[in-house]
């Protein structure tokens, strides 16, 4: 059991190191800032619409719960 966890830990370290060593032959800009800017804007554009739509749906739901159900239907 202990040997297993050591192997897993080693693999994790190895994989983490791999990301650093991973060459990026097609990246047009060598700067880390550019990479981070692309990461950031990718995350922003992906998460923003989902969270906004989610927020609006949540807001609509709370509004519906506050109003008593319509009669006659």
């Amino acid at each position: 059991m202990k040997g297993n966890s050591i192997i897993v830990l080693m693999c994790c370290i190895l994989l983490a190191g791999l990301a650093q060593a991973d060459a990026c032959p097609v990246c047009f800009s060598a700067k880390d800032e550019t990479r981070l800017a692309f990461y950031f804007s990718t995350a922003l554009l992906s998460i923003l619409p989902l969270s906004m739509v989610g927020g609006v749906i949540f807001w609509i739901r709370t509004r519906f719960k506050r109003v008593p159900p319509q009669t006659g239907a």
Binding site: S29, T34, A37, S41, L44, L45, P49, M52, V53
Partner: peptide
């Protein structure tokens, strides 16, 4: 407004990328 926010988010993203470049 949702659409407009996305439009501005795109402008901001573009700005940040160009600035980082």
């Amino acid at each position: 407004v949702l659409t407009e926010i996305m439009l501005f988010a795109a402008l901001i993203s573009s700005f940040l990328i160009v600035k980082a470049d």
